[in-house]
Structures are given as structure tokens and as C-alpha cells.
Amino acid sequence: MRGLAILLVTFVLLALESPLLHEANIQPYAPDLVLVVCIYLGLTSTFERGVGLALALGLLHDGFASGATIGMHMELATLAFIISFRLSRRLVLRGVFGSMLVALVFSVGASLVELVLSLVFVRSFTQGTGGPGLILSSMLPQALVTAPFGAFLFWLLDRLDGLVTRKSDSVFM
């Protein structure tokens, strides 16, 4: 029930992301919503269920991101979940700025992993000019855009968890 709710909310957010960003004219940097959801899952889910959910969310992200190579966001989502799960005892989302910082650091890491995976697996990646350079140069702006959405999504998912599971504790300090 909880997993389905998170999947549905993410699906709706991803569907609205592209038209909303174009309407608001804040292209070309898009917040990595799935990455933030996977960090949250790592802090709150069991391992097996979380991996399954991260894979499904990554696949969904691959589907919505036109031009993305299938598997790229799946790998990033699963990695983010596993790292977040492993750090869950030490990682504390302390307030808005803490949440933003966590999202920012994970986003930078995701860009680096994306760069490596693109170089290894995506044959057309190095054909044009500046593919790797572009990822490196947009790494920080991308992370800065993801960070505020990170704080908002952590809060939203925490509320959603409260509604679906009627839990009283929160990942926020």
C-alpha cells in the first residue's frame, strides 16, 4: 500500500515535471525527483522492498526522460537507495537545510556516476562534442535545482507516510 502510494505520487510528479518546467521556463536543469524519493526510501524502507521500488521508480524515470538510455536512472535510483539505506543510521535530515544538503550531495554523486556509466555503456555519448564536459559543467546547477525540491519531497513523502501507515515518528529531526 505504502509502496504503491509512493509509486503513484512519483508517477504524477514525473508526468507534470516536463510540462511544468517548460511552462515556468526554467529549463534546461530539471530536479532529479526520483533520486530524492530513493534517498527517502533508503531511510524508511526495508531493504528488499526498497530495492524493488527503486528499480521501478528508475524505470519510470527512464520512460519519462526523453532521450535517456533505459537502465541509466534505474542504476542511479538503486545505488542511491542502497547508499542511503547503508547510511540510514547516521544520516539525519535536520530541518530544511539539512534535507537540501543531503539532496545536493546525492545529486552531485549521481551526476558523477551518470558520467561514468555513459562513458562505459552509451556508445553515442562521446560522438558529439563536450558530452562529458557538459555533465561536469551542469553537475552543480543540477544539484542546486534538486536541493530545494529535495526538502519539499522529503516533507511530502513524510506526510504521505503519516497518512498511509498512520505512523507517528518522522525521519525529520
Partner: peptide, 17 residues
Amino acid sequence: VAFLGLTLPLFLLYVHG
């Protein structure tokens, strides 16, 4: 589970890349 979760996307990446 972790091994499968990390290798399945890599396989898909290889196929689609």
C-alpha cells in the same frame, strides 16, 4: 537482492546503449 538490483539496470544499459 543488491546484486540483482545493480546488475539488471547495467544489463539494460548495455542493451540500450
